[in-house]
Amino acid sequence: MTAEPANALSVVPSSGALALDPFVVAVVLAMAAVTVLTKVGGIWIVRHVELSDRLEAGLSVLPGAIVIAVLGPELAAGGPAEWSAAGLVVLVMWKTESILLALVAGVLGVVGFRALL
C-alpha cells in the first residue's frame, strides 16, 4: 500500500485508481460500440425491414433467458445456503421492489446461512 497523493481516489491501493490499461480500454470501447449498435439499430431496422412478430417474440425472451442462463450453473454449483439466500432475494424483491434492500438481505443471508447450514 503505497501512500498516494491525497486525492479522493487514493483509497484504492497499488495499481492506481486512475490506471487505464490500453487493452482494457479497447475492450470497453468494443463493448460500447456493439451496445450503441443495438440501441440505434432497432429504429434503423424498422424503417428498412419488416420484422415478423415471430422473430420479435423470440428476441423479447432474450434478456430473461440470458439472466437465467447465467444463474443456472452458478446456483447449481452452490448449496442450501446459497439457494436460501437466492430465495430471500426473490422474496424481498417481491415485497419491496428495492434492489438495494434485496441485495443487502441476500448478502447477509449468504453469510448467515453459511454459518448456520
Partner: peptide, 13 residues
C-alpha cells in the same frame, strides 16, 4: 455470491 444474487433480483424483475 453477490453477482448471482444480483441476477436473482434481475430475474425477479
Amino acid at each position: 455470491f453477490m453477482l448471482a444474487l444480483i441476477f436473482v433480483a434481475l430475474a425477479a424483475e
